[in-house]
Design a protein around this nucleic acid. Structure first.
Lengths: 234, 234
DNA sequence: TCATGACCAAATAACCTTATCTGGTCAAAT
DNA sequence: ATTTGACCAGATAAGGTTATTTGGTCATGA
């Protein structure tokens, strides 16, 4: 057992790490506060010094994972030379989110993981919020003449949102031996999207990159503000 | 109560109709043989003269509904002037299948409807079979120079299969007020597919139509043979 | 010959009791 | 000032009993 840093931040991180691992493996209901405490190397009472109840640990984890995912998304877009296209943007938004098991379980409304938290969380509207973001962003690209203006933005983004849903869930339907390399799938999908949305004359690709940059700056800013005012405690 | 035709075919049809309605509404487990008999206007024992057990009624219904869906699919393709394109073909394959509530419940593995039959049916491989059909058909189109030969058929058909999955399930995720007209969604999707698969030189569209026609003839033939040797009884 | 109603054993639903576990609390220890 | 271990009431799990329902059978009726 290496040196244990018992600063507040480290205890909280250790508790959230333990909670994350246990919730993913055994589900929320089957993971006891004693399990979490024991895996985090603290007493159960120590957890209650920071979070009022078990549910608050779950919610703190949700916030933390969301911030991590957003960070990942920003990094991916900024690192991709083709990050300025709509198809690539969609790809990164999806891959970043669904590389996180906790957020994936949330999007999937996975009762095995979420258990009794499902009812307590109520209607999460995750896909609706996602749809609104996709829509808002696509419309900004249309305004910038970077993509076709004649496409119905709502219909297209609904389609892409449901495709995302399908890709995420299909992993549970088709056995791995019959599943192609997902990065290949994404390449085809990005190509398909780009062939659809790109205007005949090619559109204003530079303006598109500006829109993407501005959008991601806004996302970054919101994340920073959120992290400033949020703590991961109850 | 109108004239009751008590020929064998009519009794069976009435029983299957009643079973279908009850299974969809109350689920397999909550629909009793007495309910089915009563709704069909026969005695429970009459059902057992034709099917050995409850499960066999379910299986007979499955066969009947599959035949209806296949018939519907053939009709749609043949009635569509654009039925010769891959995108349109995909559309009709999907819309025909998922306009049938019983088959939809099966594809969705809807425990509310299927109940204890889920375990008894075991691994249905429905999406795998569908994938194989999509793949086989796309490869035939590639061979006929009707679509791009450089596309990875497996990756593309996996993508379209998962999209189908997403579209079917998304109805349960996004509220109806925020769901666009699905025929609009299909139009965009067909356009997206066609823009992706059509070769730069337009390909051999006439050869494509021949492939479609031949394929649907085979489907029709198989359906006829199946209906000849199948009965809807245990 | 075909449809039916009465019947039956097993399955299911409803209810109850007891033992154990779990989220949360608080005084004591460091 | 911070962490901990003992404690507790309510929740959950496990086990049992009783009443009702259900899938299926078979002799009878038309």
């Amino acid at each position: 057992m290496p040196q244990i840093d018992n600063s507040t931040d480290d205890i909280e991180a250790r508790v959230l790490d333990a909670a994350s691992e246990l919730f993913i493996r055994y589900g929320y209901d089957k993971s006891t506060m004693n399990d979490i405490a024991s895996n985090a190397g603290v007493a159960k009472s120590t957890i209650y010094l920071r979070w009022k109840k078990k549910e608050d640990v779950f919610r703190a984890l949700l916030i933390r994972e969301s911030c991590l995912v957003t960070e990942e998304w920003i990094d991916r877009v900024e690192a991709d030379p083709k990050g300025g296209t709509y198809g690539a943007w969609i790809r990164h938004a999806t891959v970043a989110t669904f590389s996180n098991p906790f957020l994936t379980a949330l999007y999937k409304q996975d009762r095995r993981v979420l258990g009794s938290m499902i009812e307590r969380l109520g209607q999460t509207d995750l896909y609706q919020q996602r749809q609104a973001m996709f829509l808002h962003f696509f419309e900004a690209l249309q305004d910038a003449n970077a993509v076709r203006k004649d496409l119905d933005a709502h219909v297209l983004t609904y389609l892409l949102n449901s495709l995302q849903f399908g890709l995420i869930h299909f992993a549970d339907v088709i056995p791995p031996q019959q599943t192609p390399d997902l990065s290949r799938v994404w390449e085809v999908l990005v190509e398909m999207v780009e062939r659809l949305v790109t205007p005949e004359d090619g559109g204003d690709a530079e303006a598109g990159k500006v829109v993407v940059r501005q959008f991601m700056q806004q996302v970054r800013q919101r994340l920073d503000e959120f992290e400033k005012q949020s703590s991961f405690t109850g």
